[in-house]
Amino acid sequence: MSEQTLETSFTRQQLVRYAGASGDFNQIHFSDHFATALGLDGVLAHGMLTMGVAMRAATDFAGDPARVTDCSFRFSKPVPVPDDADGTALTVVATVTDDGEGPYQLALIATIDNGETVVGKGKATVSR
């Protein structure tokens, strides 16, 4: 089975930039005060940012993003992002689960630096 690994990180600066690009200014994505007032441990990365970054493992595997024809995700846990220079490391592994004659079927699993799985049931279909 073939595998593609992507390693990256999320910082608070990246979350603020994503909020501006997406229009998602929910304060749990940049304010510890607001996040903890809601009972969270701290700021969390946007789910769609996590998904978009995880899809880079699939597009890297495909070579051409247009070859990715379908995807689905199930988030296991949110991604906490501390207010420091390093942020949270994210590792995504895309593994071919079906290498028959049809399109490639990939399983996408994302973990953060403490070993917790944050995307446990990601899938992507890549045309040949």
Results as ranks from 00 to 15, higher is better:
1 M>L: 14
2 S>T: 10
2 S>I: 06
2 S>R: 15
3 E>C: 10
4 Q>N: 12
4 Q>L: 08
5 T>A: 14
5 T>V: 15
8 T>Q: 00
8 T>V: 08
9 S>V: 03
9 S>D: 05
11 T>V: 08
11 T>G: 02
12 R>T: 00
12 R>K: 08
12 R>D: 01
13 Q>N: 13
13 Q>H: 05
14 Q>P: 04
14 Q>S: 12
15 L>P: 08
16 V>D: 05
20 G>Q: 09
21 A>L: 04
22 S>G: 05
23 G>S: 04
23 G>W: 05
24 D>Y: 12
26 N>R: 06
27 Q>L: 13
27 Q>A: 15
28 I>S: 02
28 I>F: 10
30 F>K: 00
32 D>L: 10
32 D>T: 04
33 H>G: 13
35 A>C: 04
36 T>M: 15
39 G>M: 04
39 G>S: 03
39 G>D: 13
39 G>L: 12
41 D>L: 06
41 D>V: 01
42 G>F: 07
43 V>Y: 08
43 V>I: 11
44 L>S: 02
44 L>R: 01
45 A>L: 10
45 A>M: 06
46 H>R: 06
46 H>N: 11
47 G>K: 02
47 G>N: 07
47 G>I: 04
48 M>V: 11
48 M>H: 12
48 M>F: 10
50 T>K: 02
51 M>L: 10
51 M>K: 05
51 M>G: 11
52 G>T: 03
53 V>E: 04
55 M>E: 10
55 M>W: 06
55 M>K: 03
56 R>V: 04
59 T>D: 00
59 T>P: 00
60 D>G: 03
60 D>E: 15
61 F>V: 02
61 F>K: 03
62 A>K: 06
62 A>E: 00
63 G>Y: 01
65 P>F: 04
66 A>S: 14
66 A>V: 11
67 R>A: 07
67 R>Y: 00
67 R>P: 00
68 V>P: 00
69 T>I: 02
69 T>N: 06
69 T>V: 13
69 T>G: 12
70 D>E: 15
70 D>A: 15
72 S>I: 03
72 S>M: 09
74 R>P: 08
74 R>Q: 08
75 F>C: 00
76 S>Q: 13
78 P>D: 09
78 P>A: 14
78 P>V: 08
79 V>Q: 02
80 P>Q: 00
80 P>C: 08
82 P>K: 07
85 A>Q: 13
85 A>F: 14
87 G>D: 07
88 T>G: 03
91 T>D: 10
91 T>A: 05
92 V>W: 03
96 V>P: 08
96 V>N: 00
97 T>V: 12
97 T>F: 11
99 D>H: 12
99 D>L: 13
99 D>Y: 14
100 G>H: 15
101 E>K: 14
101 E>N: 11
102 G>L: 06
102 G>P: 07
103 P>C: 07
104 Y>A: 11
105 Q>Y: 03
106 L>Q: 01
107 A>R: 13
107 A>T: 07
109 I>R: 10
109 I>G: 01
109 I>S: 07
109 I>L: 09
110 A>D: 05
110 A>C: 09
111 T>K: 11
112 I>P: 05
112 I>V: 15
114 N>A: 11
116 E>C: 05
116 E>T: 00
118 V>K: 01
119 V>S: 03
123 K>G: 10
126 V>P: 01
126 V>T: 01
126 V>I: 08
127 S>H: 12
127 S>I: 13
128 R>T: 15
128 R>A: 14
